[in-house]
Amino acid sequence: MAQLRKSDLVKNWLLGYSSETCYNYERLQALGNANAFIPIIKRLYKEDQYAEEISKYMNFFNTEPSYMGTVIHGITAAMEEKRANDGDITADEILSVRSALMGPLAGIGDVVSQSIVYPILAGVCIQLALAGNYAGPILFEVIYKVIMLTLGYNMYMMGYRKGKSAIISFLKTGLLNKILELVSIVGLMVIGSMAVNNISFNFSLIGWEVTNEIGSVAFNLQTTVFDALLPGMVPLALVLGVWGLLKKRVKPTVIILLMFVLAFATIGLAALCGAY
């Protein structure tokens, strides 16, 4: 009876972090997964079975590999153990479980890692770094990795112990979405403050002074118009403008180009006002 040891599981989990070492458009994380399952295959099968057993991991595979997707490897490891011992699980069953789970977990994992943990941490740490505080990058690195490894390890072990059905019923409770929504509140407040702190565009270069017999009147587009209406209005309008464009599926590259146009058009107007 071949049984996986704790050390095999830990190796499998850790090697999963090399899923994207040879990242490629054709099969994305396939080769990385084959690499991650080497310790499992070695423990469970005889040498003449290696070719057949490792080949199933060379199929197209892609998920979020660091935070949540590790659960798939845990489930797979448990299935491999059963397959090696009772032989009542086919390679196709393993493959279909893996490909059924990779999409949903990529979705959740990307939300957790890339649109919650990263932006909130980056939002706070960038401010520290811009102010010349070394805590910025160091906190970013430490907190990011602690969250990543804690979640990744526990998801892996949960997958191994409880299997597919437990994960699916957990995803169905909607508990995770509720937590994500609550954390999104923090995220939104952070990016709201970033709009104020980090966008430094204004129209103060555009202005002129009119002098006649009554006196002189200075006009400045920024101070006499926008600041008087609502301070911070220009950055807010920029953000909402970008959002509107993204909703219309305008590509980020095009938006970057539009930003260049906006800046140089402003410079042009400033030149007309005699700035240069």
């Binding site: 649109s115 953000v239 970008v242 959002w243 980020p252 938006i255 930003m259």
Partner: peptide
């Protein structure tokens, strides 16, 4: 342009969240 560009990051996040 450097002062405007951060609006892209903020806008993209707003789009996600």
């Amino acid at each position: 342009v450097g002062g405007i560009l951060p609006a892209l990051g903020v806008g993209m996040l707003l789009n996600f969240l």
